[in-house]
Structures are given as C-alpha cells and as structure tokens.
Amino acid sequence: MPRLNRIIETALYVDDLERARAFYETKLGLEPLLKTATLFAYDVGGQSVLLLFQRGQSLHTQSSAGGSIPPHDGHGPLHIAFAVEESELAAWDEKLQQLEIAVEGRMDWDRGGRSLYFRDPDGHLLELMTPGIWRTY
C-alpha cells in the first residue's frame, strides 16, 4: 500500500475573508501565500498551508488550464491545532490576553504536551499544541 506522509493543507470556511485576514495575519502572524477573491492561503511554519475559503464560493467545480478542483465547503465550527514550542506557550497565552482573545480551554495531556484553545472570528476552535500530545508529536 502506498504511504501517506503528512497533511499539507487544512481548509477553513469563513463568512468574511477580510475579517479572517485581519485575524490570521495581524493577530496570529501568518504569512500570506496567495490571495484571490474567494481564497486566502497562509504558510504555517514552512511545513503546511492553511486555506481560508469564502464560505459557499467553492461549491462548484473550479477549472483552469491546469485542470479542475471538485466542489467542497464546510459549515459550523471546525477545529485545527497549530504546533508551538513548549517554551513559547506562556508567551502565546499572554499575547492572546493582550489581544483580548478569550482562552476557552486548557489541557495538560497524559503524554506531557499542553494545549490552549480559543476561537477565530467565525467560531472555529483553534488550538495551540506543544509536543508530547501524540505519539507522532
């Protein structure tokens, strides 16, 4: 069986791309890779890409000279986790407080990792995760 190596892209669907841009660029410091009328893409640690789609705008096949992308979309609050160093978790906690972003949950995991949970403007649950949570991280 061929092997899957890792997840490259993760997609969230947002109601307002500009509001999402302000949050992810200004508050979380993500660097943009691509901006179109219906999609913003961000580099996450030089290892993965966060895609923000304008909700409802990817419901039809998107075609170009290179091929086509099948329809997709999402509804409701989704969840993603960002990897952070253990030594930077306290700084992230302080930064979120300064930005008046409520930390909704904290977890000390059995394997030794820790997590902070908060929401983006569209209600998606974001997690900052330190190493030690999963066997693979």
Rank of each mutant, 00 (worst) to 15 (best):
H72R: 15
P70Q: 08
A65G: 07
Y117R: 08
E85W: 01
W92E: 00
R111M: 14
A90G: 04
R106D: 09
H79K: 14
E88I: 07
A102Y: 00
V84F: 06
R111E: 06
D73K: 05
V84K: 01
G66V: 12
Q97L: 11
L116H: 11
P121T: 03
I80K: 01
G67K: 00
K95Q: 15
S87D: 09
P77L: 03
F118R: 10
D108G: 08
I69P: 05
G76W: 05
Y117T: 13
G105Y: 01
D93F: 04
R119F: 01
L96R: 04
G113Y: 07
D110I: 08
A83L: 13
E100A: 14
A83M: 12
V103R: 12
E94I: 11
E86C: 04
W92K: 01
L99Q: 15
H72C: 11
A102G: 05
A81G: 10
G105T: 03
S87W: 02
D122K: 06
D110K: 14
Q97D: 10
Y117S: 07
P121M: 04
S63L: 11
D73W: 02
P71F: 00
F118N: 13
L116V: 10
G113A: 07
L96I: 01
Q97C: 04
G113V: 00
E100W: 05
D122N: 12
H72W: 07
F118K: 13
D122P: 00
V84M: 01
L116N: 09
A90H: 05
D120G: 07
G74C: 05
Q98M: 11
A90Q: 13
D110E: 14
G113L: 05
G66M: 10
E88C: 12
G67S: 02
G113R: 04
H75P: 00
H72A: 12
D73C: 10
G74P: 01
L96N: 01
D122I: 06
